[in-house]
Design a protein around this nucleic acid. Structure first.
Lengths: 211, 211
DNA sequence: GCAAAAGTGTTTTTATTACACCCATGC
DNA sequence: GCATGGGTGTAATAAAAACACTTTTGC
């Protein structure tokens, strides 16, 4: 039996400008970034504690997944601290103006992090990749109008390889519905059609990937 | 900051007589079964604590995976207790004679369990299924001579469906090597050939399954 | 008109499915 | 010799991969 504190971390991922990004916080005057976190209270479960981190950002995520529990004896030298890490995927337009500093960082370009937060992020990125291959989670990150090139870029980031545009469309066209509109944000070329997911559920994996 | 105890659970799975089974313990005189567990000590990480549960059984698992952290406020009414659950897959011949009572239970026939151990097992079974679809983990559970019908039965248990024998062999024959011997345990028919896995690694999933 | 990104079809290759008969052993 | 489970091949179908040109926009 030990006396210890439990830290809850929330890795908040989003798609921003065709890149997968994570939301990080910085304390006033510091140069070091940190993950959103919270100490577990006596009257709450880990899941409800993670939910309270969401409240801080006024977001209502539809997906919160446990990633890993970190328990190295020395991860906090002052006091035995166990960290339970969660991840969520949000739409970046859910983010509002807050009275604290935050920034979205490309997951391939994480800044200097406090304590072992860098390890926690790396672990969460692995979780993220698994989750994004699940169509249901994609529907969360792309709730409204999206273009197929946008979607393809997510897959290319997650799978770490380029995908032929025609073959990609062949997979996804049966799953989406044209809204009739076109992307109004200029991309330097022909504007892409906007789609939303149809209600069809998929009975197989979209990509045959080793987990 | 709270004072709490951390419980570590280890779900030990094995293949026994063509069935997936889990190792459970019973206290003297009790009718209720429980998972192998341990309270986290101040000088150990969760992973090393789970390793010490293995020591109790004198097993050296090559795979220990974290499944889930259970934190319901009321899961232990006497004292706030957080449970971290791990799973491992062992070869049943690693088990020895111990000075305590244990039994292997079919995962489809779990007995009455103490506290929330039943929930912890159900969660671990989901983890197990994901892991068993990974060839590397199969190599652990079948380290030595095995027959293809044995292997097929594992897949049928995990996937929850029957597989055509010829199609199954078509997938696995390129991955295994005949040892030249035959199964000496009578099965009521022609004895099966024994195989071991070759060192080839697979660059794709064997079965296209939704995670 | 040209650069940049989006849209479109066909062919080849590979993987999956469905399916039936013979073989080796124990009794 | 018969019941039981193990071993084998082929044809049809479905999915994945490879591949090049046209269209729409902004400047």
């Amino acid at each position: 039996m030990i006396e210890c504190q439990i830290e809850v971390f929330l890795n908040i991922f989003t798609m921003d400008n065709d890149k997968l990004k994570i939301l990080l916080l910085k304390k006033d005057g510091s140069t070091i970034w940190r993950l959103p976190s919270r100490l577990l209270k006596i009257d709450e479960s880990l899941e409800s504690s993670a939910g309270k981190i969401c409240n801080k950002f006024k977001i209502k995520p539809e997906l919160i997944k446990e990633c890993h529990t970190f328990s190295n004896v020395n991860r906090n030298k002052e006091r035995r601290t166990i960290a339970v890490s969660y991840m969520t995927i949000i739409n970046k337009y859910s983010l509002k103006n807050y009275d604290f500093e935050y920034e979205l960082f490309d997951i391939n370009d994480i800044p200097k992090m406090a304590f072992d937060h860098g390890d926690i992020i790396n672990n969460a990125i692995s979780c993220l990749k698994k989750e994004l291959l699940n169509l249901e989670n994609l529907k969360i990150i792309f709730p409204a109008d999206f273009t197929l090139p946008e979607l393809q870029k997510v897959y290319e980031e997650v799978l770490g390889e380029e995908i032929d545009r025609r073959n990609f469309r062949k997979k996804f066209l049966p799953l989406v519905i044209e809204t009739g509109d076109k992307n109004e944000i200029p991309t330097g070329g022909r504007p892409a059609k906007l789609y939303r997911f149809s209600d069809k559920d998929l009975d197989r994996n979209l990509f045959n990937v080793i987990k």
